[in-house]
């Protein structure tokens, strides 16, 4: 399936800012992290279409996935 993937902050180092990717149908958020070599334990949070999802949330085709390390400010 087709996904638009956005990476932020330290996750861009050695990867990309935004990319259109093909990913196996029926896979989960966690499997996408694995494919991007982002350790699950270091994850901050993931948004799909601007909504928070969990590692075991199934991905839907033609969505935007935004992946953040642990960040904060304010």
């Amino acid at each position: 399936m087709h996904l638009t993937v956005k990476l932020f902050a330290t996750y861009r180092e050695g990867r990309f800012e935004i990319a259109d990717l093909e990913h196996p149908d029926g896979s989960t958020v966690g499997s996408l992290l694995d494919a991007l070599a982002i350790p699950r334990a270091e994850l901050g949070f993931v948004l799909v279409q601007g909504r928070h999802v969990e590692l075991d949330t199934p991905l839907a085709a033609n969505t935007t996935v935004s992946i953040f390390p642990k960040v904060g400010g304010g």
Partner: peptide, 25 residues
């Protein structure tokens, strides 16, 4: 040790939140 105070804030400052809040709508 904490990623927010140890990595994110030093590298990008508080403005790291612009993309966060924008992506979250």
């Amino acid at each position: 040790r904490h990623a927010v105070t140890g990595q994110g804030l030093p590298a990008y400052g508080t403005n790291v939140l612009t993309n966060v809040l924008n992506e979250a709508g």
